[in-house]
Design a protein around this nucleic acid. Structure first.
Lengths: 159, 159
DNA sequence: TATTGTTATACTCTATAACTATA
DNA sequence: TATAGTTATAGAGTATAACAATA
């Protein structure tokens, strides 16, 4: 009875590392996006809107995990720059349907190009294959629990 | 010449997902840590200090990727609660040597126990094996580029 | 009455500049 | 002169409460 039983060790805690890497990515992204007049927050919103092909402000708030009141200001910024459009929903006039404009789509492409360089730098400790694995794990971790956040049906996997 | 050459596709962008998951982890962590009188920031500082076995404030700022001025306030909080100690370095009296107290070590253990539950919830979309892979990728990504951030030699891999 | 979006506001987080004490 | 830490402060991020329009 001297040998210990084989047990499943609990996985390491990822929280601190996640915070750390995310922080670095955000810091670097800020300086790259500033010349385009965007903040990281703006870019994430634009990306989500393109992937969804439009959204109500409330759903957007849930997806971004932001307070709805702050989404208002965020969209005000983007609307001032003609990057998004707010239209009243015809089926429920309380709602706004938020969509990218052509200008928004084009700026988003430019921003993504700039951000690719940032990722190359921040994630240069990983091989391309490892980066792909990281992407898949992050995607799976975020999308699995997303259904609870979105009350309205959003069909795209990006949610 | 109709068949396309096999090329390495560029890896997906991880930035948005990283931000998203990190955000969720932080939001959940806040509510769990609040009863202990801690904020996520405090916990990360305590964890780093334990792993390093002590640090100057400047090195701590580099490791946490925080501005040095904000580290002052952070350590003030922790010192008020007797979780850390600041001592003048005998070799360079400009510096403080920051170390955990016994109280700090004990509270850190309690906090980590609470945070384990948060990780289980936030990462429940991943299997234990996938979580371990995620940890290793995050660890590798952060530690590879850490040498540049820390001018002073810090021997522990946690840096 | 409940929901969507909005405004006003307070609180936290973060960064910049000026100061002190040591080197 | 340069560095470690501190203070004061301004800006950005975030959350809460009250309100208008609509359901």
């Amino acid at each position: 009875m001297t040998s210990l039983p084989v047990v499943n060790q609990p996985p390491h805690r990822c929280g601190a590392l996640l915070d750390h890497l995310s922080r670095r990515m955000r810091l670097r992204s800020e300086s790259v996006l500033a010349p385009l007049g965007l903040r990281p927050r703006h870019l994430i919103a634009l990306t989500v809107l393109r992937d969804l092909g439009g959204s109500s402000q409330q759903d957007l708030a849930k997806i971004l995990e932001m307070d709805g009141t702050n989404v208002v200001g965020l969209l005000n910024d983007l609307e001032t720059e003609n990057l998004i459009e707010r239209r009243r929903s015809p089926v429920d006039r309380r709602r706004h349907v938020v969509e990218l404009t052509d200008v928004g789509v084009k700026l988003l492409v430019r921003a993504e190009f700039a951000l690719a360089a940032v990722e190359d730098e921040v994630l240069r400790g990983l091989s391309d294959e490892q980066r792909e694995t990281l992407y898949e794990l992050l995607h799976q971790a975020t999308s699995k629990t997303e259904a609870e956040a979105c009350t309205e049906a959003v069909t795209r996997p990006t949610c």
